[in-house]
Design a protein around this nucleic acid. Structure first.
Lengths: 241, 241
DNA sequence: TCGCCAATAATGTATAGACATAATTGAAAC
DNA sequence: GTTTCAATTATGTCTATACATTATTGGCGA
């Protein structure tokens, strides 16, 4: 372990506090003067650490007011993660999540991804269908780690989408998405009210906060009804939508 | 126009030089001392600008050696852009690009995306099929802006993939990808040697360098043979593949 | 000629202080 | 009470300097 530069140490300690949830979104950080006393260093050193966090989008800084943990908007710039509920509503349609099943369980030992998500802890398994104006748009099976997100146990998802709730309440820092085109199997086709073997977009996404798994979701989109759009680039140059 | 902080001005001027291609990948930047003389400021100010560029991945800095424009690896961290050639080879298979057509032309006035890509300039249109061990994996139609990438005119793509060549030679800064599941039409199915109406992953990607369009590509992947994987997150926490 | 070592040139980190800027707070004036 | 203005406080920028770190370069010696 090489001795970390002081500004890096300050940076990473604050970052850890944010990612672990010890500092919640909206919380105010100590002022630069507080921190320079705490670490016994010059203000420029503290400033460098905080500036880096601000550049990374982890905190917001306001003159006279102080520095605050940023609200989870992490993803918006990087990828339009499909928050179906929001997108359907934006298109002027009526959104509904039809809950088909819900169960707390231990991870299936035969499923590597489930075990990786929950470790020894429990999972909440949710199954349902997203509707736009009453028409099925996508079917999803979702697992949420109950140790990472205990508050989800008290949520009722008949009508509202679990994905939208998670996006609002649990910031993620890492995500991996697998995308494929598949022919709908009989069960999925029935739930989506489409002919069997229709082309569907299959999306499997896992998200983490730091090293802790948050959720794993598998979605089948009705091929004709949905496109995924992903944008990459610096915010700076992303003029005009 | 508010007066930009000096370190921001330095930063953005160098950034512009890199994005415009005036500073090519591998080129050496002036030293901090040169820049502090050029801008008449303290070294810390120059340092802040260069550190920001390094954090953004636009330049690499090496002690004693200097600062250099980074090789285009921009994407690797953000998204595994499917460089099919590389991926096929990594799987231990033999890769081949079968060139079906190649033509320089003006953008089709009826196609908004073509016009947006090339403006008044010319396009190179390339059509071909990607093969892994002789089996068709994907069909693509690609347009490349000849004003943005004049060197491509001298390239021969029978055998090698135009996507791989572009990734190596032309760094992009912005990308937009549209992904959908479609049933293969007759012509596409024939080229991919699959039954008509097989589920295919359709990918349409546009890339830019700064505000200048580079390429537009439309690909049909054989559904059963290919998954797209996208990863998002800070490099820091992306331990272990 | 080859290999080692020291000088050197570049970035990396840190300090202490100065002044600028902006937003909030509280006090004074109406 | 309400409005206005000034003091305060926190961040933003910049300077000048010092020493640390590291890789290259060139020279010296075997």
């Amino acid at each position: 372990m090489t001795t970390l530069p002081l500004h890096e140490r300050i940076r990473s300690e604050i970052e850890a506090a944010i990612l672990s949830g010890a500092l919640v979104p909206g919380a105010r950080l100590p002022t630069e003067h507080d921190l320079m006393r705490e670490y016994g260093c010059a203000r420029m050193t503290v400033n460098k650490a905080l500036s880096a966090l601000a550049a990374a989008g982890l905190i917001d800084r306001r003159k006279r007011a102080g520095s605050f943990v940023a609200r989870p908007k992490v993803h918006s710039m990087v990828l339009d993660v499909p928050d179906l509920e929001q997108e359907v509503v934006q298109r002027g349609q009526h959104y509904r999540f039809e809950l088909l099943g819900r169960e707390a369980k231990r991870p299936d030992a035969g499923s590597a991804v489930e075990v990786q998500l929950a470790g020894r802890g429990e999972l909440l398994a949710i199954e349902g269908v997203h509707h736009a104006d009453g028409v099925p748009l996508a079917h999803e099976t979702r697992f949420v780690s109950l140790s990472a997100v205990p508050e989800i146990a008290g949520q009722d998802f008949d009508g509202a989408s679990p994905g939208a709730w998670l996006l609002k309440h649990v910031p993620w820092t890492e995500a991996e998405t697998r995308i494929a085109a598949v022919a709908a199997d009989r069960a999925t086709a029935a739930r989506l009210k489409i002919p069997a073997a229709t082309a569907c977009l299959f999306v499997e996404r896992r998200t983490w906060r730091g090293n802790e798994g948050i959720t794993l979701v598998r979605q089948h989109f009705v091929g004709a009804a949905y496109d995924l759009i992903a944008r990459f680039g610096s915010a700076r140059s992303m003029a005009g939508g």
